[in-house]
Structure formats: structure tokens, C-alpha cells
């Protein structure tokens, strides 16, 4: 072709001369990119840092107490002589309180989300959705405070208990606290269900309730379960509420009407008194590590489910 006849003399050498001035600019561009990359990696560093710190600070306890008897030991007497480090009561307390919270927040949260998405008209939704999101920001310590001054005396009177600070109280408050989060996330999932799904259902003569039960909920099912899992993850990791209202007894709970000491409460309540570097200190770090693993697994599961959900509904992000 004709371009072959061009003066090939303007090859690499002249090219270099012409663009020498541009060279600095390109170096600068690369520099910016590297700075941003370095800063981005720092978030990775923090996660690794957290894992590393939790590992390092919790390992010493396992040289004193084997992992099995740490996890399944029935007695948590960290300050006795000799101390006992069995965190089964704490784990069970966490499980009880979290399950109790789920009983409150799943029906309320998902029900509210369904109402917002399916029943409420546009105006109602415009007002209620932001309100839910604003209420989701109420600090946990305020919930805890509310639990202490109002719910505790109430439960004590109703069930004539020695103390109103029980697993039930903690479950109720935690559930209430997780409700806006679950509702907001579930509503997001519902809003991703394409309108065409609903129209197809209406077209074959289904009413709104049938459409909701048979089409919308199955379509948004994995999105809703992501919301529930994240709500659970939030409930199990929540500290201040359970610290204030769960009562704090580190024994294996038999009913919901007994005081309990979930893992987070144990860490928050005892870290202040645990001598730094002692067994108790390391044991508390080990509890935090276990807590970290639990929430980590929850988050990964939620991530996997939500990714499938997005693929199913064809949402690219």
C-alpha cells in the first residue's frame, strides 16, 4: 500500500526526541497510579493485620488450654485460682440471643420490606423507606439504654423474675435493632425483581398475593436470605446492647428468662480488668478470633448467595 512509501526515516529515534517532553508527564501518570494502588492495598493490610493480631494474641492461651476444652469447656471462671477457660457458655449465650433476635427481626424486617415493596403506594414508600434507613442508624448504646431503663423492669414485673436482664431482653432489643437493617436490605433485593415477572404472573390471572408468594418471593429469595444472614452477622457481633441488657451470667442458659453472657459482652466487660499479656487477656482475644471467624463465614456465605442472586436476575454489579 501507499503508506509503505512514507519516509520511514521518522522512525524510533526522532520519535524519542519528539516525545521526550511527554516523558515526564507519563512518569507522573504512572506515579499517581502507583500511589493509588499502594493506598488501595492498605485495606488488605488492615484485614490481614486484624487476622494476624487476633492470631498472635490468642495463640498463647492454647498452650495452656487445649482447643477442645477451650471451645467445649462448660465453665468460664477466668479470675478463679486456678482459672477455667471454657467458652461453651459464652458461645451458647451468643447462639441463644442471636436466634431469639432472628425470631423478632426476620418476620418484622422481611414483612416490612414486603409491605414497602408490594403494598405501599409510591408516596408511602418515598417516606417510609428513608425513615427506616434513618432509624437503622440509631446507635447500639441507645438501644441498650432503652433496654435497661424500660424493657428490663417491664420483663421483671411480667415474669416476676429476680432480674429483667435476660436472654429474652437481649434477644428482643437485638432483634429490634437488626430489623431496619434486614428490612432495608430485603427491600433492595425485592426492588431488583423485574416488573416483567410480576406482569407475567398477573397476565395468567394470579392476584397480587399469589404473585407475591409464588413469583416475587422465590425470585428475591436469595437476596432476602442475604439480608437475613447479614442481619444475623450484625446481631452476633453486636456488643453494647448485650453488654447492657443480657445480664452477664457466664453459665449455660437453660431458658430464655435467665441472664446470659454472649461472647461480645464477655470481651467488652472483661478486657478492662484482664491483666495485659495474661491468660485471661489471651483467652479474650481467642474469643474475638472465633467471633471473627463466625462473622467471616457469614459474610462469605452472604456474598456467594448474593452473587448468585445477581446472576439469576441478570444484574451486572
Amino acid at each position: 500500500m501507499a503508506c509503505l512509501s512514507w519516509k520511514r526515516g521518522r522512525g524510533p529515534s526522532s520519535c524519542r526526541a519528539q516525545f521526550l517532553g511527554e516523558h515526564m508527564a507519563r512518569v507522573k501518570e504512572k506515579l499517581y497510579e502507583w500511589i493509588f494502588a499502594a493506598l488501595a492495598f492498605s485495606s488488605l493490610v488492615f484485614l490481614i493485620g486484624i487476622v494476624w493480631v487476633l492470631c498472635k494474641e490468642s495463640l498463647p492461651i492454647f498452650s495452656r488450654v487445649p482447643l477442645g476444652s477451650f471451645l467445649f469447656g462448660k465453665f468460664w471462671y477466668p479470675t478463679y485460682c486456678p482459672p477455667e477457660f471454657g467458652i461453651l457458655p459464652l458461645i451458647l449465650s451468643s447462639v441463644w440471643v442471636t436466634l431469639g433476635a432472628m425470631v423478632v427481626c426476620v418476620p418484622l424486617g422481611v414483612g416490612s420490606a414486603l409491605y414497602l415493596n408490594e403494598v405501599a403506594n409510591f408516596r408511602q414508600r418515598q417516606i417510609l423507606k428513608p425513615m427506616i434507613e434513618i432509624l437503622a442508624s440509631i446507635p447500639s448504646v441507645v438501644y441498650g439504654f432503652f433496654g435497661v431503663v424500660l424493657v428490663t423492669p417491664f420483663l421483671q414485673k411480667v415474669f416476676s423474675l429476680p432480674t429483667g436482664m435476660t436472654a429474652l431482653n437481649a434477644s428482643f432489643i437485638l432483634g429490634l435493632m437488626a430489623t431496619p437493617t434486614v428490612c432495608s436490605l430485603a427491600e433492595d433485593a425485592l426492588s431488583y425483581v423485574p416488573r416483567s415477572f410480576r406482569e407475567a404472573s398477573f397476565a395468567v390471572g394470579a392476584d397480587r398475593w399469589q404473585t407475591l408468594i409464588k413469583v416475587v418471593i422465590p425470585a428475591a429469595g436469595s437476596g432476602i436470605s442475604t439480608a437475613i444472614i447479614l442481619g444475623m452477622s450484625r446481631a452476633i457481633g453486636e456488643t453494647m446492647t448485650v453488654l447492657m441488657v443480657a445480664g452477664g451470667a457466664a453459665v449455660i442458659p437453660k431458658t430464655l428468662l435467665e441472664p446470659v453472657r454472649p461472647m461480645t459482652a464477655a470481651i467488652a466487660a472483661e478486657m478492662g480488668e484482664a491483666p495485659m499479656g495474661g491468660d485471661h487477656y489471651h483467652a479474650l482475644f481467642a474469643i474475638a478470633f472465633i467471633l471473627f471467624i463466625i462473622t467471616f463465614v457469614f459474610n462469605i456465605v452472604a456474598e456467594i448467595i448474593s452473587r448468585r442472586f445477581r446472576i439469576k436476575l441478570g444484574i451486572s454489579r
Binding site: 503508506c3 519516509k7 516525545f19 511527554e22 508527564a25 507519563r26
Partner: peptide, 19 residues
């Protein structure tokens, strides 16, 4: 392949795409 602008190959690595 090659793409020339005024006889200069713009795909060469030393050429700044910004320019």
C-alpha cells in the same frame, strides 16, 4: 499492524496515547 498519522506509527510504545 500499524497505524500511521502523518507517516508516524502511532502504535509504537514510545508514542503517548494522550498526545
Amino acid at each position: 499492524g500499524r497505524i500511521y498519522l502523518d507517516g508516524q506509527d502511532i502504535l509504537m510504545p514510545c508514542v503517548d496515547p494522550v498526545e
